[in-house]
Write a protein that binds this DNA or RNA. Sequence first.
DNA 1: GCATACCCTTGATGTAAATCAACTATTTAC
DNA 2: GTAAATAGTTGATTTACATCAAGGGTATGC
Lengths: 252, 252
Amino acid sequence: MTINNTIVKSQDSSCPHDKKVNCGNCRLNTICLPISLHIDDIDRLNSIIQRGKPLQKGDYLYRANDPFDSVYAIRSGAVKAMTISDNGEEQVTGFYLPGEVVGMDGIGDNRYTNSVIALETASVCEIPFNRMEELSLQIPNLQRHFFQLMSREITQDQQVITLLSKSSAEERIAALLLSISSRNSRRQLSANAFRLPMSRTDIGNYLGLTIETVSRIFTRLQKQDVITVDKKEIVINEMDKLRSIANGEADH
Amino acid sequence: MTINNTIVKSQDSSCPHDKKVNCGNCRLNTICLPISLHIDDIDRLNSIIQRGKPLQKGDYLYRANDPFDSVYAIRSGAVKAMTISDNGEEQVTGFYLPGEVVGMDGIGDNRYTNSVIALETASVCEIPFNRMEELSLQIPNLQRHFFQLMSREITQDQQVITLLSKSSAEERIAALLLSISSRNSRRQLSANAFRLPMSRTDIGNYLGLTIETVSRIFTRLQKQDVITVDKKEIVINEMDKLRSIANGEADH
DNA sequence: GCATACCCTTGATGTAAATCAACTATTTAC
DNA sequence: GTAAATAGTTGATTTACATCAAGGGTATGC
């Protein structure tokens, strides 16, 4: 908590490295956009999207209770969403990787319920929600796309509920690693070797475990040769074994 | 599991007790519909809604993996949503009371991820999603309403995640009782005395606790005179005390 | 270059809730 | 009306993970 981070929202369209970025040429558009959009529609969507300066590690994208006006697609880097509960404790509610959309928690009551913080240098595409809604009235596929995005967020959260309700510490960690692995491979990255963008503390907070337990599980999985851990670098050596652990099929 | 329940979808508009039910005169319309809809718009919405025979206790409204085509507003009674995880265990993902809308988990991939089962005799209003989407293109408030409904489902699920991740058994039970209490009072019912529609098993499953623990917590809260329990009938004697327990402020 | 802070690991001990077990109450079935 | 199944309670014991504690590694600042 040493840095007093500020929200980065200013749009600088003359920023050199952003000049050519648009939804039409973005590598992530198969993840973040409905595939079925006509090319003209993509242009119209692109025209409402704002691309600001990158967030630095620790910067807030928005804070809980801020008035809601946009959702954000992650273009590079990674962010975490978290809430502060009544008794003042943090709860990490999700990690968002490139191509994924964050901010839909704010629609319900026109205020964000989460705060979103960059885990590393990250750039985002801001999608003003009112303009997206207007556009949706003309592009039915866009409306459908946002309904689907939100529905998938619901089912993902319900999977986390199941994880917290039914799974052991080892199963939770295995499931998180598999989730990150599959999200990486959707972006054409390696499913077997990657760098975790979040700290052990964040992992523990997200999975309802203490940092000590997270650390112990990592070493235990490494001793079983299922994974290789070097700080935040993870190599999955035995994907099937990791899957069976996540599914609770491993010998206890 | 003795009853092989079937899905009740047949619409019988000549069914006498349903004759006069419509969204315009429904007592629940301030909960289930956007308040800001024009009266003509309510009629148009009403015209796409189908009201079938009531579900009996244990009947399925839909099953996980069924093709998605509708969301459902609960008109009376109560239902639970649940998934079966990979290892075959059930996870209750939510309880839905009158005025609340269930089924939005199916939008993402055009299949329901949950099964929904009546906890007691229940009647529902079926809202065919495709027709609702078309109508949304003409009624922007309706589009907004569904975005809000889904967003609130997301934030609710995230609250459950926090509950499972951070709270003790006592805090979880207290939070569930408070949730049901406040949802009852939204429907002009007593916030202090009500009947739980679900079994201890369902409560435990939802909150990530065993049935024994649920039972013990109920007796413990009763001994502290915070609540009075008689089977499924609950009386909240000390609302403030229950709130402070839910917030983790109680002496341990 | 050293100080301060932060992040992570490993070990010893404590505890909340799970499990195992036995029993009662209530509903369903014939 | 009785049998059988289902739902809930209470007690004894176990256990997975939290907590407490100590130390090492790496980054940040002056």
